[in-house]
Structure formats: C-alpha cells, structure tokens
Design a binder for these strands. Sequence first.
DNA 1: TTATAAAACTTTAAGCTTGAAATAATTCCG
DNA 2: CGGAATTATTTCAAGCTTAAAGTTTTATAA
Lengths: 154, 154
Amino acid sequence: MVAGPTSAGPGKDRLRLWIRLLRASRTIEAELRERLKKEFDTTLPRFDVMAALYRSPEGMLMSDLSRFLLVSNGNVTGIVDRLVSEGLVTRARRNGDRRTSMVRLTEEGSKSFAAIAAAHENWVGELLGNVSEDEARRLTGMLKSFRSNWEGRE
Amino acid sequence: MVAGPTSAGPGKDRLRLWIRLLRASRTIEAELRERLKKEFDTTLPRFDVMAALYRSPEGMLMSDLSRFLLVSNGNVTGIVDRLVSEGLVTRARRNGDRRTSMVRLTEEGSKSFAAIAAAHENWVGELLGNVSEDEARRLTGMLKSFRSNWEGRE
DNA sequence: TTATAAAACTTTAAGCTTGAAATAATTCCG
DNA sequence: CGGAATTATTTCAAGCTTAAAGTTTTATAA
C-alpha cells in the first residue's frame, strides 16, 4: 500500500495521491506514537478513545466510540478495559438499558488527557510546520470534499 | 487521533488538517482491506510487501523491505514468513553475506500480485472518484512538499 | 590475530485490529 | 403473552505491530 504505481497511464494520478496520503499519514502517525510512548507512556488508540470521551463529558456508549473512531466493537472493548484498569475511564451500567454502559473519563483521566492533548497539538504543529495555516485550510477542504462522496454509503 | 481540536485558536488549522488526513486514509484503508480480504483472501500488509517486491525483480533484503514500507524489522519477518508458507515468496540465502537473504516473488506470487494490483488500482480510482486527475496531482504535490521538511531528519 | 563493535535478522511480550461467533437484554408482533 | 428478530456488547482466533532483547555473521582495529 506504500509502493507506487507499477506503470504510467490514466487513473494513475489518483493512485499516486493515495500512496502519498498513506505514506504521509503513516509517517506522522509513527512519530506521534513514538512520542506518546516516550513522553506519556501511552498509545495512540488510548489517546483516541480519551479524545473522544473528552469531547463528551456526558459519556459515550461503546458503539458510539467504535463508530466515531472507525474501529470495530471488539477493538474498543480491549482499549477501554485497559483504560479502566489504569483508572482513567469508568464504565457505568445504565438503568434504562442494561445491555449498554456509559463510558466516561475519570477526573484523573480528564486531567491526564488535557496535558497529553496540549503536547500532541504542538507536535502536530511542528510536524506540519511547513504547511502554512492557509494551505492547511485549503487542504482540509479538499480532503473533506473527496471524503463525502462515498463514505458511509452502505 | 481521530477526534477534532477541543477549542479554537492559532495552530488549530494544522491539527484539523492532520485529523482530516488521518480520517481519510483510515477510511480508505479500511475499505481496501475489506475488499482484499473478500475478493482475494489476502491482507494489506501482504499486499504491501508483494508490491514492493514486484518493483524489484532482483529481490530485496529484509531491511530494504522494512525501510521502504516504514515498518519494523520484526514485522516484516512475520509477514514474509506467511508469504513463504503460501508459496508466493522465497527467501534465498546469499553466499556473499550469510546474515542476509534475498526475498523475491515466486512466479505464482508475481501472477497473483498482478491480478490483485489491477483490482486495487480500480478500487482506488473509484474511492477517490470525485477528485479530478488535476486536483489529484496538485494534492500529491502538496503532500510531497510537506513531507520533505521533517521526514528522516534523524 | 582476536576482542569488540556493528549489521542483519529473528524472537518475544504486549498491545492493537478485525470479523465472526457467543451472550444478554430489548423490541417487535402475531 | 411469548417466540423471533434486533441491538449492544464481549469473546475469540488469527494476524499485524512495535520496541527491546537475542543470535549469527561480518567488519574494525589494537
């Protein structure tokens, strides 16, 4: 998925774009993962879950989390398990529907996330340093538009 | 890593860009992974390795592969192990340096990859369908330039 | 030489990831 | 009501991924 087109021809430009996109995100992701590990002894998936929960103080269901994060249900189960065991997150059984449980950041989790998120934003600013703010906005717009076409079509 | 900035302010545009980038590549990647599984009973990492080898008929060292694919050494070991056991790839011990082995596609592997790659290219063309070829080239250029700044700096 | 370092690779432990199967609770309807 | 389908979640097996530690081979240099 990281190798280039094997020949020239029509349609190759989209393939090239995809390969660039993937290489860029993988490289940045690897750098962020490494820093999260070194500086905060945490992982990208844990950070993702905490980021989602930070935006929803009222809590999220497991299915909300997996839908929002674009990962499978079983995946979220394991990550939340570990966050719970670390005291960063709670699972609260609900009276209304006993199949579900509300997942929330603990106070400690919230404080912890705020600190990590600040560093994370600086890192991204650094890693994308030579994209001007203006260029960043334009790129964001282009990415937004090409996503909307086919995403979530089923 | 998929959640948005938690507030407005300077530097947020780069963070937004990063989140878009990540969501886009994850969504496309998930779709491609699923199709590779359904249509060809293979995986993205296997496809990546085969794509790299297809470009190098003379073969690649394990370390070449991991460097090119942006993954760890140990990772490539496992994937190549499985490809070898499937008869798609060979590991040839070299006389010159007995620490290394040349990894190559078998004839079967080469044929198999060509078929998968054709489908893969069509899928990417479809998934990025509403990016014009011209826009694709411009985006590719922007991604290329912002990568070169910091990648491989150490 | 011959120790020592460096290089190429594999192994290992822990965690992430998926899709499919299993559980449990709720909703739908006949 | 009561069986059937649906929904929310967990469990499971297989594979991917990394960092760190270990093995084997080659290069360096005292």
